[in-house]
């Protein structure tokens, strides 16, 4: 089976002489998976997501999506990748409907289909009532939800989620996770970064822990717990492998 995302020996450093943020990073995400990409601050999670998104260049290595080189087929592959960045990336002075119309339109979704899809997603994420409010006036949780809808509007085959539930209440978090699970059941592969180990253990079908730009371990949550002595959950595995020293 061709992996939907394949990262091979990816290296990245921001300036010559700086340390490598990504140091020959390699991992694969298979179709239908929810791959948890976990690691402490500065481990290289967001950098990896930004590189796959095409926002920053990398120094060496290869990225393949559905077996195709991402750099060479960026235009075509952009259409099947959805991105939900860590920071809210929505036009704040526009309403939810206007934002989604624009993003959907840029993806080239047919107007009728787009209208229906916007309607159902807004209902699903509990935002339909607020569809004509400017996003600026939304609460933190509502902004996270609209940020997520914008990334999945075009029904991508691969969805990259960079800490999608950070800083929101339990209710919003629950709505987001439940809907992401449903999206995955419908065939979307998810690459998910988070610091929330409990959420990752529950949500991800497989996880990879990254530290200092390298994958240090990989497998299902159960496998990792079994493999690591004296650990009974993903958080203890994570702490054992990455240490308790503060990372900034």
């Amino acid at each position: 089976m061709t992996p939907i995302l394949s990262i091979e020996k990816l290296t990245k450093r921001y300036k010559k002489g700086d340390r490598f943020v990504l140091n020959e990073l390699s991992f694969e995400v298979n179709p239908g998976e929810i791959y948890g990409f976990l690691g402490p601050n500065g481990a290289g999670k967001s950098t990896t997501v930004k590189i796959i998104s095409g926002l920053i260049p990398y120094n060496n290595g290869a990225i393949k999506v559905l077996g195709k080189d991402l750099n060479e087929n960026r235009k075509e592959l952009k259409k099947i990748i959805g991105i939900v960045p860590q920071d809210i990336a929505i036009f704040p002075t526009l309403t939810a409907i206007e934002n989604l119309k624009i993003f959907g339109g840029i993806y080239g979704i047919d107007n009728k289909i787009l209208k229906k899809r916007i309607h159902s997603l807004l209902e699903l994420f509990g935002l339909y009532e607020h569809r004509n409010k400017k996003v600026d006036h939304y609460s933190g949780g509502m902004k996270r939800r609209i940020n997520l809808i914008a990334g999945m509007l075009h029904e991508p085959s691969l969805l990259l989620l960079d800490e999608p539930t950070v800083g929101i209440d339990v209710q919003s978090k629950n709505v987001i996770i439940e809907n992401l699970k449903m999206l995955n059941k419908n065939g979307t592969t998810i690459l998910y970064t988070s610091h929330n180990m409990e959420e990752a253990q529950d949500f991800c079908s497989r996880v990879g822990i990254i530290d200092e730009g390298k994958i240090i371990t990989e497998g299902t949550a159960e496998e990792l717990i079994c493999r690591t002595p004296n650990c009974n959950d993903l958080e203890s595995v994570y702490l054992k492998l990455t240490g308790k020293t503060l990372r900034d």
């Binding site: 998104s53 095409g54 926002l55 235009k75 952009k78 259409k79 990748i81 991105i83 960045p85 920071d87 809210i88 990336a89 929505i90 036009f91 704040p92 993003f103 840029i106 993806y107 080239g108 914008a150």
Partner: peptide, 16 residues
């Protein structure tokens, strides 16, 4: 403003 609120980056990840 678009750069600061992240919407520019989102556009650049789209077919744009």
């Amino acid at each position: 403003k678009e750069r600061e609120d992240g919407s520019f980056n989102r556009l650049m990840t789209m077919p744009c």
